[in-house]
Write a protein that binds this DNA or RNA. Structure first.
Lengths: 128, 128
DNA sequence: CTTGACCTTACTGCAAGGGTAAGGTTTAAG
DNA sequence: CTTAAACCTTACCCTTGCAGTAAGGTCAAG
């Protein structure tokens, strides 16, 4: 398989696949005589893992941890569970922050004159 | 006022103040004979605006829009209101996305064996 | 024979500054 | 008087996760 084929099967771009290789998430593939990367199916689970966990909000470094667990036959499923739970907590923190910010903005907006005049209590509040 | 003083008054770092100058958010200040930046109080409202709107999730470019409104005596407060409301909507979109991701992760976690064995339905699900 | 679709490496760019280098200035203390 | 701390300056690299582009090699079809 050439790179565009694995990329498409995993739902990634060619660029991304090469990037993951560069940062060591996937092993360096064999090369054809012309220098083209030559993949076999064994790389697909890892690329799928990367694709899905990136979409689930994991950083590339966090993907690395997941891949290590995936590659480690002595893993405990509890360790994977732990990673997922940590991510859920991180997301909940983010959500709380966003909620905070949103409430602040809504408070500003409701105090706003919202008309054609230049007097603006939002700007007044933000600049003081 | 020297840079560290304005920075502290606005709750920003010296680095950030210089950065905002470089990208044109604040005017280039006068210089003392030794080359040090010399600020007067008129820059503080703008730095406050930047600080607070950055904290409220606005990008530097969005801050630029707010500053332009602040500097424009012919502005309409409704325009400011509009910017705030757009930001609220963007935040709500982000929240919805995070909620989506979180639910996905929780679904994975609850299906997980969560024990000392290596069998892991999370990894199975993410790699297939 | 040439066009177009692949592939390669390598460099630049994005956001929003932080970190550090290498140097000049000023001020307080010994 | 000197020195050390605490400022200030410009300028460069680092971060994240790739995308875009350059400049070139390769391969199959028309």
């Amino acid at each position: 398989m050439k790179i565009s084929e694995v990329a498409e099967k995993a739902g990634l771009t060619v660029k991304a696949v090469r990037y993951y290789e560069n940062v060591g998430l996937i092993p360096k593939p064999a090369r054809q005589q012309n220098g083209y990367r030559s993949y076999d199916d064994s790389v697909l689970p890892i690329l799928n893992l990367i694709h899905r966990s990136r979409a689930a909000g994991f950083s590339v470094d966090e993907c690395r941890e997941l891949i290590e667990l995936f590659n480690n036959p002595a893993r405990h499923s509890a360790d994977v569970h732990e990673l997922i739970c940590q991510k859920v907590e991180a997301i909940e923190k983010q959500q709380a922050q966003l909620e905070h910010i949103k409430e602040h903005l809504i408070a500003l907006a409701t105090r706003c004159e919202n008309n054609e005049k230049s007097t603006c209590s939002i700007l007044a509040s933000l600049t003081k």
